[in-house]
Design a protein around this nucleic acid. Sequence first.
RNA 1: UCCCCAGUAGCUCAGUCGGUAGAGCGGGUGACUGUUAAUCACCAUGUCCGUGGUUCGAGUCCGCGCUGGGGAGCCA
Length: 463
Amino acid sequence: MSENIRIVKLLNTPEAGGEYTVAGWVRSTRASGDIVFIVLNDGSNLSGIQLVLERNDIPDFERFSKIATGTAIQANGRLVPSPAAGQQYELAVIKLKIVGESNPDYPLQKKRHSFEYLRSIAHLRPRTNTFGAMFRLRSKLAQAIHRFFAEHDFLYVHTPIITASDCEGAGELFRVTTLPPNSAPRNEGGSIDFGQDFFAQKTGLTVSGQLEGELFAQAFGNIYTFGPTFRAENSNTARHAAEFWMIEPEMAFSDLHDDADLAEEFVRYLCRFVLNDCAEDMAFFDQYIEKGLIERIRTVAEADFARMDYGDAIKYLQKANTNFNFPVEWGLDLQTEHERYITEQVVGGPAFVMNYPKDIKAFYMRQNDDARTVAAMDLLVPKVGEIIGGSQREERLELLERRIGDMDIPREPLWWYLDSRRWGSTPHAGFGLGFERIIMYLSGMENIRDVIPFPRTPRHAEF
RNA sequence: UCCCCAGUAGCUCAGUCGGUAGAGCGGGUGACUGUUAAUCACCAUGUCCGUGGUUCGAGUCCGCGCUGGGGAGCCA
């Protein structure tokens, strides 16, 4: 590490007077006669630090008064109280070194840019205020998530990225293969012979770590995964990406209500965390991205989440004075417009919808005694919609096997999953939370492509 | 994949009835002893997304394509 001090640390220095060296990238240069102001940002905070250059104090003054936006510099000077409004301290520069030149072609101007434009220069956008705040938040949130589970004694398990189970029912897989694309070996029938592939079977990138997570829960009690997840769906929306990160806890000896309890505590923990530990960046989001964000998050951090049965949600929707585009009827899945009505109009905050009809849910969900619903839950939040999907899992071998049969799912590849119900099976439950979706919810950002450093969506894998 | 909207200067956009393009910001130059997206003055900048058509004439109208955005489905 260099002798440079991080700007965020320097600005937290209790008193001025010392001599320091900072290094970063120029955000703005303002020259006025014999004095030049440079806003320098090193990524450690939002504001950066104001450098002050005076003609009499610094050699090469003329040259430095024309430093272009984007230039990488290292500056040495004295930390002094700022005589002007806008900042507490500034750095009275004695020595300045240009580390990497920039020029007027630098695509980031001293003005607001649209998110669409910034997506086209994703390699440079982390140097903007919004994306600086965004990726600091993302980093800290990831660490907070690990801390939450560590504090609750959950085991962190790395489930495989490459998987052979394409029957998880969570979406299209990206294929993983080393077979030559134009001359793949064929069976007699003409289909591709995956027996000759690297893994001697058809494999893809994981769409969920849940099934493997369940196996670990049956040994460690409480576990979680937190890793990349891939869906090859041709989804073109503000909240879908082909590559995203998912958090999937799984708890043995637990039911659906324990599951919702965990989800609620988890989301509330993250709300409190960003308010307390990301205050400067959150204030920025509150001012420029979503007015009232902080108040909204504070409310969520304090309130209990609503819980309602799917059946009751249907009743609310049928009573609603709204013309929905899609029919509302017991047995049909809730559409986005319905979910939004529930969370935004009925509840006005986060809401769990629980116990869905079994016919619209995955095979592994636990069948309720009413024989027509399963112990599933979705957590819906205003603006983002579904942020968590979870369930209690079917732990009874016989019922699980029957369900697999009813749904025509090949059972052979799932032999190990079924084995977990054979010896020492326990009631257990878990959920999946999209990392990007919680970031969107907590920051007010409305497009998933703006909360991922280099997003992968259909037709986009540049950078 | 479906529906809708858009593509004009580096960026954000305006462009009337079809008559060969303009503003703000950004940039350059100069002025200014403390600025906060500094201010003031002056200066420069275009494959009007591509392609085919209609027309005396197309940024403008029509077809096709490409790209981007919004919504839906899939879901986290």
